[in-house]
Design a protein around this nucleic acid. Structure first.
Lengths: 228, 228
DNA sequence: GTATGATTCAAGCAGTCGTCTGAATCAGCG
DNA sequence: CGCTGATTCAGACGACTGCTTGAATCATAC
C-alpha cells in the first residue's frame, strides 16, 4: 500500500519547508521533490496548495489543543488553579511538542510561528477556528486568577502571552548577542511562565487610573484623529 | 522632475503591499501598478527586489533607532532610569510611529511585524545590523534595572519583550473574541509597559533554583522520544 | 538650436508557479 | 485470466515571476 504514507510524507515535507521558507516562498515542486513523490500527488490527495497548508496545520493542532483543554480541565477539577498552573496548561503542550519527535516538533512549532504571522486567508480562518475552541476557556481561566481585571484587559494580556509564545516558537537567534538562542530546554518554559505570570499580575491600569512611574502621565491631545 | 517622488511612491506602495501580503506574496508588478510607475523603474532605482525590501526597511528604521537611543541617552544622563522608563524608550518610538503618519506608520509597523518573521536572508542581516546598534545598549540598560539577573537572562527577557512588541505590531485581531483588537491608542503602550515591567521584575530563576508554584517540579521522563 | 545625462517606456527574456490531463501502474476480487 | 477502483506517472497548460533591453522622453547645459 504505497498510498498511505505518501500523504504523510507530503505533509511532513511541506511542514519542514513551510517552516524554513514560509508558505508563499515554498513551491509545490520542492515539496514533492523533498517528499520523493510525484507532483500530481499533492493535487490528488489534497486538491490545492491551500488545502495542503490546512492539512499540515491540522495534523498537530487538534491533539495540541485537546491536551491544553485536558490540562485545564484537570486543574479546575482540583480547585481554583494558580496563574502559573494555567499558564503552564496553555504553554507547556506546544513548548513540549517543540522539543519532541526528534526535531519534527521543532519543525512544526517553527511552522506555526511562521504561518501565525503570514497574511494567508486560510491561516486566518484556521487560527480563528482553533482559537474558538480554547480561547474563551482560557480567557475565563485567566480572568479568575486576576479578578480585578476586566475581560478586555484579560484578552489584551492574553495577546501579550501569545506574542511571547509565537515569537519564541520561531526562535531565530536574531540578536547578534552571544547565547541569544532561546533553548528548547524545559527551563525556557519555566522562565517564560515566571515572566508572564509576573506580568499578568500587574495591577489593572483601570484602577489607579494614571500610571505611576513613567514620565508622561497623559498625552495632552488625543493625537488628532479627524478634522485637524 | 518626475524621478524624485517616483522612488518614494515605489517604496510606499511596496511598504503597504509587503505589509498586507508579505514579501514573497507580493510581485513587483502589483507594486508598480499600485505606485503608478513602470515596472523597469524598480530595477532602475533599486536594482533588485531584495534591495527594494531593504529600502522600505531602512526608510524608517534609522530614525526610529536614533529616537530610541536619544531617549535612552537622555534618561541615563538624568541618573539611573526606572525599568518603566527604559521600556518606554524602547517601545514608545515604534508604537508612536504606529499611529502616526495618517495610517502610513500603521502600515510600516505591520510591515515590520510581518517581515520580522519572514525567512528572507536580507531581513536576517538587516535586523542583525540594526540590532547591533541598539541591542547592546538596551541589554545593559535593562540589566542595570535588575542587577540580580545574569546577562543571559536579560537577553532572554528582552526576547520576551520583542515578542510582545512584534506581535502587537501585526495586530491581527485573530481571536474571535469581542474587542480583541489591540488599539493603537496610547493606553495600549502603557498597558504593555506595565505588563512587561512586572514580568521583567520577576525574580531570577537562577537563585531559587526550582520553580515554586507549578505542579510538576521536574518532568519525570523525557516523553518517549526514540525507540518507542 | 543641438547635445547630454537622467529617467521612463513598451516589449520580451527565460524560468517558475499552481493546476490539470490522460495514460500507466498497482492491488484485490470475480 | 479479466475487471475495477485507487494511486502514480510524465508531460503540458496558461499565467505569472524577477529581470533585461533598446528605444523614447524629459529637463537642462552649451
Amino acid at each position: 500500500m504505497p498510498g498511505i504514507d505518501t500523504k504523510d510524507r507530503i505533509v511532513s515535507a511541506a511542514e519542514r519547508l513551510f517552516a524554513e521558507r514560509g508558505f508563499a516562498g515554498t513551491s509545490l515542486r520542492t515539496v514533492t521533490t523533498k517528499a520523493g513523490v510525484n507532483l500530481a500527488a499533492i493535487h490528488y490527495h489534497f486538491g490545492t496548495k491551500d488545502a495542503l497548508l490546512r492539512a499540515v496545520f491540522e495534523r498537530r493542532i487538534g491533539p495540541l489543543n485537546a491536551q491544553r483543554l485536558e490540562r485545564l480541565d484537570r486543574l479546575e477539577a482540583e480547585g481554583s488553579p494558580t496563574l502559573e498552573a494555567v499558564l503552564e496548561a496553555f504553554l507547556s503542550p506546544i513548548m513540549t511538542l517543540k522539543r519532541d519527535l526528534e526535531g519534527e516538533g521543532l519543525v512544526w512549532s517553527r511552522f506555526i510561528g511562521r504561518v501565525y504571522s503570514e497574511p494567508i486567508e486560510v491561516v486566518e480562518t484556521m487560527i480563528r477556528e482553533q482559537f474558538e475552541v480554547v480561547g474563551q476557556r482560557f480567557v475565563t481561566a485567566f480572568g479568575r486568577c486576576q479578578p480585578d481585571l476586566s475581560e478586555l484587559e484579560v484578552v489584551e494580556r492574553l495577546q501579550f502571552i501569545i506574542g511571547v509564545m509565537s515569537h519564541s516558537l520561531i526562535d531565530l537567534n536574531r540578536i547578534g548577542l552571544p547565547a541569544a538562542q532561546q533553548g528548547a530546554g524545559p527551563e525556557t518554559l519555566q522562565h517564560m511562565i515566571a515572566f508572564l505570570a509576573a506580568g499578568f499580575r500587574a495591577p489593572s491600569a483601570a484602577k489607579n487610573s494614571h500610571s505611576d512611574a513613567n514620565p508622561q502621565p497623559n498625552l495632552p491631545q488625543p493625537p488628532q484623529a479627524r478634522a485637524s
